Simulated assay, not measured.
Amino acid sequence: MWKFGPYHGGVWKLRVELPDAYPYKSPSIGFVNKIYHPNVDEMSGSVCLDVINQTWSPMFDLVNVFEVFLPQLLLYPNASDPLNGEAAALLMRDKTSYEQRVKEYCEKYAKAEDVGGLPEEKSSDEELSEDEYDSGDDDMAAGPVDP
């Protein structure tokens, strides 16, 4: 849980994709549950890559992403380079209303009890843990096996 400005109390699940050239190329970061922020695409959750790419170095690791880059992004949104134009315009026009909208999103989409139930995307090379395998998840489709 981050304690940053209007995002205080919100809990988000993040998607992290490491490129083949990592750590020489920055990871791709996205929010799984919705967040209202000028530099985060509201539909996909993708974080503006420039935010991370501008300062990325192979000396950084994922700890830097979670403890430095993302908190800085939440504290200091860049309304002049938005992925969410509505959020950027509201921030520039009326910061109080922007912060109220952020808090509404936090209450609606970023509660700790809700994040645990969000569906996760699995890549083809990830293995299921024993708990996930035995969970009897109905979301998985099964069909006849070809001989």
Score class of each variant (00 low, 15 high):
Asp134Pro: 11
Asp50Leu: 05
Ala89Ile: 05
Glu127Thr: 15
Glu42Cys: 05
Asn39Cys: 01
Gly9Cys: 02
Val40His: 04
Glu130Asp: 05
Asp81Val: 14
Asp139Tyr: 11
Met92Leu: 05
Arg93Trp: 04
Glu121Lys: 07
Pro38Val: 04
Pro19Arg: 02
Glu113Ala: 09
Tyr105Ser: 11
Glu132Tyr: 15
Tyr76Arg: 10
Gly10His: 02
Glu104Ala: 10
Asp146His: 09
Ala141Gly: 12
Pro19Leu: 10
Gly136Gln: 15
Gly136Leu: 15
Ser123Arg: 10
Glu17Val: 15
Ala21Asn: 11
Ser80Arg: 01
Gly143Ala: 11
Leu91Arg: 07
Phe69Asn: 00
Val51His: 15
Phe66Met: 06
Lys13Leu: 08
Asn39Gly: 03
Leu83Ala: 05
Glu99Val: 00
His37Lys: 08
Leu49Phe: 03
His8Gln: 08
Val63Asp: 14
Leu14Trp: 14
Glu113Asn: 09
Lys122Thr: 03
Ala87Glu: 03
Phe4Asn: 14
Leu18Asp: 05
Glu120Trp: 11
Pro38Glu: 03
Gly10Arg: 08
Pro38Ile: 02
Asp139Met: 15
Phe4Cys: 14
Lys103Met: 10
Cys48Lys: 14
Asp50Cys: 06
Ala79Arg: 11
Phe60Tyr: 10
Glu127His: 06
Asp61Glu: 00
Ile52Asp: 01
Phe66Val: 01
Ser124Gln: 11
Asp41Ser: 07
Lys103Tyr: 02
Asp114Glu: 06
His8Trp: 06
Val47Asp: 01
Asn78Arg: 07
Leu70Lys: 09
Phe69Cys: 02
Leu83Gln: 02
Ser26Leu: 04
Leu62Thr: 00
Glu127Ile: 07
Ala112Phe: 07
Asp50Tyr: 08
Ser135Pro: 07
Asp146Phe: 08
Arg101Val: 13
Gln100Arg: 13
Pro19Ile: 01
Lys95Asp: 02
Val32Lys: 03
Leu70Phe: 11
Phe4Asp: 10
Ser124His: 13
Ile35Gly: 03
Ala21Asp: 15
Gly45Val: 10
Asp61Phe: 01
Glu67Phe: 01
Asn53Phe: 07
Pro27Ile: 00
Ser124Arg: 14
Ser135Cys: 06
Arg93Glu: 12
Leu18Ala: 04
Ala89Asp: 13
Lys95Leu: 02
Gly116Met: 09
Ala87Thr: 02
Lys111Asn: 04
